[in-house]
Simulated scan of single mutants.
Amino acid sequence: MQVYGDLHSGNCYKVKLVMNLLNIAHAWIHTDILNGDTHTTSFKLKNPNSKIPLLELDDGRCLSESNAIINYLADGSHLVPDDPFLRAQVQQWQFFEQYSHEPYIAVARYINKYLKLPAERVAEYQAKQEGGHKALAVMEQQLAGQPFIAGDSFTTADVSLYAYTHVADEGGFELAIYPAIEQWLARVAEQPGFITMQQTLSGHQV
């Protein structure tokens, strides 16, 4: 398997984390979106949407969208429930991540950390704060009564939400006011095969 991605991205980190959790052999191909790597003819043949992460299987088939990739990789493992309703709950939280969480927290992080909060985007950055805190409050309520986001077991829903939540402070979101989230972050980091975003950037695997 080959994965095209940039490990500074939470969406790409999700894929790397699942592969490490499940000890899946793969080649990682660094892909720089700012350098136009996803707009080459060869990349567009693999993903016409010109986005990363992108998984390419040994037979040449390709799969995009981070949550689809990690659910595919984890199919049949302890990270994806066998029960249809429980599996749908995992997907429910992954849709929440993509529609109610990532557009606020990840974008605020990008503007603040990588663009260095330019004057022309300060208003956009500030506008992301309310939505981000709303998403964190929903997670806090969910995690106050159970150890993991979709129930008692660690699943790909936790991977999906961990990716940008654990670096939410880089987007201006103070996590100390969310104790249940902080405890959940610690539980995720205790999972066998866990690897931090920083470790992936340094090329270290455990």
Results as ranks from 00 to 15, higher is better:
185 L>G: 05
131 G>K: 03
39 H>G: 04
45 L>R: 13
24 I>E: 04
12 C>T: 15
80 V>L: 13
100 S>D: 14
195 I>M: 11
162 Y>V: 06
160 S>V: 02
148 F>E: 03
43 F>R: 02
139 M>K: 14
103 P>A: 06
89 Q>K: 15
202 S>H: 14
47 N>P: 12
69 I>F: 08
126 Q>V: 10
137 A>M: 10
157 A>L: 06
15 V>G: 03
120 E>M: 07
87 R>C: 11
194 F>P: 03
158 D>M: 12
129 Q>G: 08
14 K>E: 06
14 K>D: 05
92 Q>M: 11
140 E>S: 05
24 I>A: 01
158 D>F: 13
192 P>L: 01
99 Y>V: 08
182 E>T: 14
48 P>C: 00
6 D>T: 06
8 H>E: 05
83 D>R: 03
131 G>H: 03
62 C>Y: 10
168 A>F: 02
17 L>Y: 02
203 G>D: 07
195 I>L: 07
114 Y>K: 01
37 D>N: 13
195 I>H: 06
192 P>Q: 04
1 M>G: 05
71 N>G: 02
118 P>W: 05
10 G>Y: 06
19 M>L: 09
29 I>D: 00
89 Q>N: 12
110 Y>W: 10
124 E>Y: 13
78 H>L: 12
48 P>Q: 02
123 A>N: 08
170 E>W: 11
89 Q>M: 05
40 T>M: 09
159 V>F: 12
40 T>Y: 07
13 Y>L: 01
32 D>E: 07
142 Q>W: 01
174 E>P: 05
130 E>L: 09
112 N>P: 05
176 A>F: 04
118 P>F: 09
16 K>P: 00
2 Q>K: 15
79 L>Y: 11
65 E>T: 03
25 A>N: 15
76 G>A: 04
9 S>R: 14
74 A>V: 12
69 I>R: 08
48 P>E: 03
71 N>L: 00
93 W>K: 02
18 V>R: 07
59 D>F: 11
204 H>V: 14
35 N>H: 11
56 E>Q: 15
184 W>A: 01
75 D>F: 04
125 Y>E: 10
206 V>A: 13
194 F>H: 10
33 I>D: 00
30 H>A: 11
62 C>R: 10
112 N>L: 09
187 R>F: 14
19 M>V: 00
148 F>W: 07
202 S>V: 02
56 E>L: 09
42 S>G: 00
61 R>K: 15
85 F>V: 13
198 Q>Y: 05
137 A>K: 15
29 I>L: 10
14 K>V: 02
120 E>G: 06
47 N>H: 14
93 W>C: 01
74 A>Y: 07
121 R>I: 00
20 N>D: 12
200 T>I: 00
144 A>C: 13
152 D>N: 15
5 G>D: 05
91 Q>F: 09
88 A>N: 10
49 N>K: 15
172 G>I: 08
69 I>W: 06
138 V>M: 05
188 V>D: 00
66 S>N: 11
28 W>G: 00
124 E>W: 11
48 P>V: 07
188 V>R: 01
62 C>V: 15
197 M>S: 11
143 L>N: 04
8 H>V: 03
12 C>K: 14
135 A>M: 03
2 Q>F: 04
182 E>C: 12
176 A>E: 14
30 H>M: 06
86 L>E: 13
73 L>T: 07
79 L>N: 13
126 Q>P: 07
87 R>P: 07
7 L>D: 01
